[in-house]
Design a protein around this nucleic acid. Structure first.
Length: 883
DNA sequence: GCGGACTGCTTACCT
DNA sequence: ACAGGTAAGCAGTCCGCG
């Protein structure tokens, strides 16, 4: 059956799609039956379809898989056919277990089986008892009486059942499968012989187990991902109070608009007809349907999301889908008429897959590594503006009072932004999620909701099951390996981290920056770091020491995390990264390789940190500590070597070394030395025409040969800095980017002095608007939760609250510094005359000082700079003038 | 009672 | 719920000062 278009979907249910509001409603449509839809979606035979998600069916007590068939763009279901049961492990014998009170008689106990498992912490095999249950809740999850609570010690009892199912059946999420006579079969994807040979050649010197893993990854990564059929959804709710977010649990107010935009560009908006609302101008290029009653509106929306394979929202877990569910219940829908499945912190679909982009974009690793920190706030408006150049429609007053035209525009725009966020770079967003799902064997919907530690956890859990390794409990690891031993520089941290070299203040011309390619993953790979290899049980390994720590590393066996992280790293560095820049390849291929390359980057960048995180299932402080320690060692050794060979090191941070005007030969020699002595690749990351350092670490400016500029850490580019100052700062950057030789600086300095002076003058004349003057600081918790101090942005937030404006964590508070007791005011409540000019003058000075210091410009000498005697309060005034 | 020195809190950044 | 290291500004505290 061919896929339905949005129009076909809606034609069935829309009561009337017209330019003018209809006077009467046509007859209602047949009611939706979720059960019938699911039954129809469960064929006994199915050709190629991607495994995209998995869940547990409580009624049938079976694992269910969701498969996406590209041919008709539909989801199909498949239920377990082998009677797989949930289980956990015990170190007691079946006989001992039977004596435990409440176990033998447990209604959920299925059977006990003695078997052998390899125990990585002790490096030996041991017998365990597999305790099987009829259902996942019997293993764990009931408030009391779960099997895992009856056992004195239980292993692997907290793995979600359907994840357990994926691992045990060796299922490849995101890969093609088929169903024959009710049985599921993988359709193996094989890379072309051309690619396979090229990769084999690339890694021919690696040990066999590394080669084996690289080929396993290749089969997963090369297989193309389709452009999933999907619809973005956004709803508007008509409440009396405009500022307050309506409660999704109560769902008290009517749903007044539902916007739907699909991946082919079809747009549709469903509107509730209400008393006294103006028509306005309805959006062009979108199908607008009016509904006389809310029930009909929801039915129309449900009939579309019920069968759409992927539904995309921005915050649908907590709002849109949750609200629709509870609102439908309130309106008397049967459970079988609502195609939404709610859990505590997610909203799923009965048949399809719901991706909540809010959760995915909130993920720090995705934000930083996949989207290059282009968006700062996790709001649809900011993400849309930053990534697409398209923000929300600006409205005034409550949505419930908008004309139909404006309401439709507003609602549709949100759905449109949401859809376009999945259409960036050839559909990179969902492809990225799919690639990560493949590597981590995680259902795609879960993947978009989990953090990196969840992905790495699943990747490693699968590998343990594949090897028949017992997954240790966190307390087993901690007991065997102990805590960290080095002292952190920051108080309260668990161990010492990276080395930062004191920069040499001033201007340096011709500065190459060398860096270790993905340093921490390289260290984990090269030095065999893993929870079972660091402080392993073998006496003969104890001499294989980690520098500056009491730890040692195994010499007998390759560590599991070392192998997995190492093979992924090698594949990224040697294959995907170069391929993603190969100009000979077509654009679409480059985009695809870039997506894979980015997925690997996201995963690799977190691979060290997780071992130092208490919440990680393989939390192992010595592993994290050893990684950081070897990093410091590599850094200091390399700097020593650079200096010994006559080079000038002007700065370095963690994995990078900045050199001043070295010869090519010197650099080449250092790189060869690193490869040979440390076993780590040192690369030329970039070369600056010149770099400007203040005396501060993590603060510098580098100008490339083409005039583009890297700015790191400087106040002038921080997001909380007032706009007027950012602009002045970037005017200075513009001047600096034109400097090509030391001689050019003279003129540049003069122009910069002028620029700073102008800024002071405009400030004094109060020519900057409040918006330009505002500091923009994010509120990280509700204002009353700041108990130790009351920072300025919180003071401003409290004033806003007093003026009956809602403030929430995540909001960016815009405030200006004013004269008077409070010191600050939110821009909504401030006036230009109260601005504290002196404070701002000081702020200008300190911002420019970071750069002018290095240029040998004394900010105090710039006309207009704040002078103590002019700005200090009267008492200090005298003291200052007496000096 | 006030100001300077100091510490701790908070945010935003770097790798 | 990936880590630690750094900068900056402000809030709050302590202490000396006839």
């Amino acid at each position: 059956m061919p896929a339905k278009t949005l129009q076909e979907y809606s034609a069935k249910t829309a009561q009337k799609a017209v330019e003018q509001p209809a006077e009467t409603s046509p007859s209602p449509v047949e009611p939706l039956s979720v059960r019938a839809i699911l039954e129809q979606a469960t064929p006994s035979t199915l050709d190629a379809a991607l495994l995209v998600s998995a869940t547990y069916d409580g009624e049938r007590q079976k694992a269910v898989l969701k498969l996406y068939r590209e041919k008709d763009e539909r989801i199909y279901l498949w239920y377990d056919d082998a009677g797989h049961k949930p289980y956990c492990f015990s170190d007691l014998t079946p006989e001992e277990l039977k004596t435990l009170p409440g176990l033998a008689s447990h209604p959920g106990l299925e059977r006990l089986e003695r078997l052998k498992k390899y125990e990585p912490l002790r490096d030996e095999e041991k017998a365990y008892t597999k305790v099987e249950a009829t259902d996942p809740l019997s293993i764990g999850g009931k408030p009391s009486g779960s099997i895992r609570d009856i056992l004195p010690k239980a292993w692997e009892a907290d793995i979600r059942y359907y994840e357990c199912y994926i691992f045990d059946r060796d299922l490849k999420v995101g890969m093609p499968h088929c169903v024959k006579d009710g049985h599921l079969k993988e359709l193996p994807y094989q890379v072309s012989s051309e690619v396979a040979e090229a990769v084999e050649r690339l890694f021919e010197k690696e040990p066999p187990e590394v080669q084996e893993h690289i080929m396993r990854w290749m089969d997963l990564l090369e297989c193309p991902v389709p452009d999933y059929r999907r619809v973005a959804l956004d709803i508007e709710v008509g409440g009396p109070v405009a500022t307050r977010m309506p409660s999704a649990e109560q769902a008290e107010d009517p749903v007044i608009a539902i916007g739907l935009v699909d991946n082919r560009g079809e747009k549709q908006v469903l509107l509730l007809r209400r008393q006294g609302i103006e028509l306005g101008e309805l959006p062009k290029g979108a199908q607008v349907s009016f509904f006389e009653d809310e029930r009909g509106l929801l039915e129309a929306a449900f009939s579309q999301i019920a069968e759409c394979p992927f539904v995309i929202t921005f915050n649908g877990d907590d709002f849109d889908l949750r609200y629709l569910f509870h609102r439908a219940e309130r309106l008397g829908f049967e459970r079988d008429q609502i195609p939404i499945e709610l859990s505590r912190d997610a909203a799923g679909l009965s048949l399809g897959v719901h991706v909540d982009l809010y959760k995915f974009f909130f993920n720090r690793s995705i934000q930083i590594y996949a989207f290059g920190q282009k968006y700062r706030e996790i709001t649809l408006d900011d993400v849309g503006n930053s990534l697409l150049g398209m923000g929300k429609v600006e409205i005034e007053g409550p949505v419930a009072e908008l004309s139909y035209g404006l309401l439709a525009d507003y609602c549709l725009r949100d759905a449109e932004i949401t859809m376009q966020l999945t259409q960036l770079e050839n559909g990179m967003t969902l492809k990225l999620a799919t690639v990560l799902a493949r590597i981590s064997r995680t259902p795609i919907d879960d993947l978009t909701r989990q953090g990196v530690s969840g992905w790495i956890r699943n990747m490693l859990r699968y590998e343990h099951r594949r090897r028949n390794w017992l997954i240790p409990r966190p307390e087993d690891i901690l007991e065997a390996k102990g805590a960290a031993t080095t002292k952190a520089i920051i108080e309260g941290k668990k161990y010492r981290g990276a080395e930062v070299i004191q920069p040499e203040a001033g201007v340096h011309f011709n500065v190459p920056v060398l860096d270790f390619q993905s340093m921490y993953p390289s260290i984990i790979s090269r030095y065999n770091l893993s929870y079972e290899t660091v402080r392993c049980p073998h006496p003969e390994c104890r001499t294989n020491k980690v520098p500056d720590t009491p730890h040692w590393v195994c010499t007998r066996k390759k560590g599991v995390s070392s192998l997995l992280i190492g093979s992924l790293r090698d594949l990224r560095v040697k294959w995907y990264k170069p391929r993603s820049r190969d100009r000979r390849l077509p654009r679409a291929t480059l985009d695809w390789y870039n997506t894979i390359q980015n997925s690997l980057k996201v995963l690799l960048n977190a691979s060290y940190g997780v071992f130092g995180s208490e919440n990680f299932f393989l939390y192992c402080p010595p592993v994290a500590e050893a990684t950081a320690s070897i990093g410091r060692y590599a850094m200091t050794q390399t700097i020593e070597r650079a200096r010994a060979t006559g080079m000038k090191v002007v700065y370095g941070d963690t994995d990078s070394i900045f050199l001043e005007a070295p010869s090519q030969k010197q650099v080449q020699e250092l790189m060869a030395w690193s490869e040979q002595t440390l076993g780590m690749e040192l690369d030329i990351d970039k070369t600056y025409r010149y770099a400007v350092f203040s005396a501060r670490k993590k603060n510098y400016l580098g100008v490339y040969p083409d005039g583009s500029v890297d700015i790191k850490g400087l106040t002038g580019k921080k997001r909380n800095t007032p706009e007027f100052l950012k602009k002045a700062f970037f005017d200075m950057i513009d001047i600096l980017s034109r400097v090509t030789s030391p001689d050019d600086f003279k003129k540049a300095k003069e122009r910069i002095r002028e620029l700073v002076k102008t800024s002071y003058v405009k400030l004094r004349r109060r020519e900057y608007s409040l918006k330009d003057l505002a500091f923009n600081v994010m509120l990280s918790r509700p204002p009353d939760k700041y108990t130790k101090t009351t920072p300025q942005h919180v003071k401003a937030a409290l004033q806003l609250q007093k003026a009956r404006r809602e403030v929430m964590p995540g909001d960016v508070i815009s405030f200006v510094k004013v004269t008077g007791s409070s010191g600050v005011k939110p821009i909504q409540l401030a006036k230009t005359e109260e601005v504290d000019v002196a404070k701002y003058a000081e702020y200008i000075s300190s911002t420019f000082e970071q750069v002018l210091d290095a240029l040998d410009i004394d900010i105090g000498q710039v006309a207009g700079a704040p002078r103590l005697d002019l700005f200090m309060p009267s008492g200090a005034d005298k003291a200052a003038s007496e000096r």
